[in-house]
Design a protein around this nucleic acid. Structure first.
Lengths: 220, 220
DNA sequence: CTAACGTTCAAGTATTTAATTGAATGAAGG
DNA sequence: CCTTCATTCAATTAAATACTTGAACGTTAG
């Protein structure tokens, strides 16, 4: 009766999208691309995946419409397509979080330890920023910060944080953020800061989610 | 530097979820399960897929935590897991809709023709229901209606609609709904009703999305 | 023009996934 | 108990996907 061909083809199309998201490396690449445009080489280095391999994964995602490529000189710069890609990945995460029970132990403890840091919500952060009662700290690498960051954020990459504690106010609460909800950078930063006597917390989401929610961003 | 094993494993887990959504037949099965619990046999029939094949797809989704199974006598009844499964599929659809340009022509015309029916939004419907100015028509098969439907809806399966036009009010607007945004049932219903002189529209979403949005449902 | 470099392509192998078939389970009914 | 029926399992084949390697392409610099 209702085995309509167009509907089937649409489902096949949706399935193709899902499969394009269905690989560990591609999800990692998307997370990095969420921070801003990047070259293949940089992505390969950051993700720790073989070069040609990254190129192929990127092309697969390009075919699916998840990312776009632009050539500039010898390099090809990839970035997220402007559809709701972040939202789709977030939906996957929400799905995963709901089934915590069915996850391997190692992942579960990882997630709950991240949760123990009492993450600040995006709404809460926005309010605190209006009040001006917190210092906002971006602990991603500098190039990602330059490509886009939350308004008024201070950038100290996690690896430099230990050497630059004196740049931070001792009396104000510090909220650290990084690439996304499961990115360890802000988690490690908050831990380090707390151990050094600061009042530190972390943002539950990261830059891509903030931007995807339509909130203002700065760059440069 | 930050090639943390737990994070990688989490991405692998997310990728597994995405792959569990990454097949035409599984998406179709999820759509049917969104209407309510169903046996393997019924699913195989409704989806037009070979029996053992359906069983294997279901088990794959069960392993991924997308669906649950319960045995009752000789039959095994599958239903959606209680995580945000509908939301994840909706995210995929949103992604697909955003890239209309990159879709094969056949699908694109299918989608735009559906859109030409000026779908009613969930919010709009809720308001109109409060006013009591519309008749709500559920055109899914009776078993799906019994398993759950929108409050106050009248059930006439699409295949019976032509014979039961006299059961419908000529003076009130009729809003038809079915299984989801891309389900043809309500589309065909609205077309038939309009051709018969009724003032008919269709709901943009379907029963599963209404329920997933936390709105009230009735059953029986 | 040639060399160097970043990226893509092509080919091969290994692995994973899908569909089909027939046998095996497990519950109900005579 | 033996049969029937719905479902699952196991085994096979076919197809798709991932990774590696080395060659090819296109752009910039000398």
């Amino acid at each position: 009766m209702s085995s309509d061909s167009p509907k089937r083809r649409l489902n096949a199309h949706l399935a193709g999208l899902a499969r394009a998201l269905g690989h560990e490396h591609r999800l990692e690449l998307l997370e990095h691309l969420g921070q801003g445009e990047k070259t293949v080489e940089l992505l390969a280095r950051r993700a720790g995946v073989a070069f040609a391999n990254v190129s192929q994964h990127l092309q697969q995602m390009r075919r699916a419409g998840l990312v776009t490529a632009r050539r500039n000189g010898k390099r090809v710069h990839y970035s997220l397509a402007d559809g709701p890609v972040i939202e789709a990945v977030s939906a996957l995460r929400a799905l995963a979080e709901h089934n915590l029970a069915e996850m391997p132990e190692a992942i579960r403890t990882y997630l709950t330890s991240i949760d123990d840091m009492e993450p600040v919500s995006t709404d809460e952060l926005a309010a605190r920023l209006r009040d001006g009662t917190v210092t906002l700290l971006d602990v991603r690498p500098e190039d990602e910060f330059r490509a886009g960051h939350l308004p008024g954020a201070l950038n100290i990459a996690l690896e430099d944080l230990g050497d630059r504690l004196t740049d931070l106010p001792a009396e104000r609460q510090i909220i650290a953020y990084c690439r996304g909800p499961y990115c360890v950078l802000s988690f490690e930063a908050a831990r380090l800061l707390r151990a050094s006597g600061f009042d530190a917390r972390r943002l539950g989401d990261g830059f891509p989610e903030w931007k995807a929610a339509g909130r203002p961003v700065e760059s440069g």
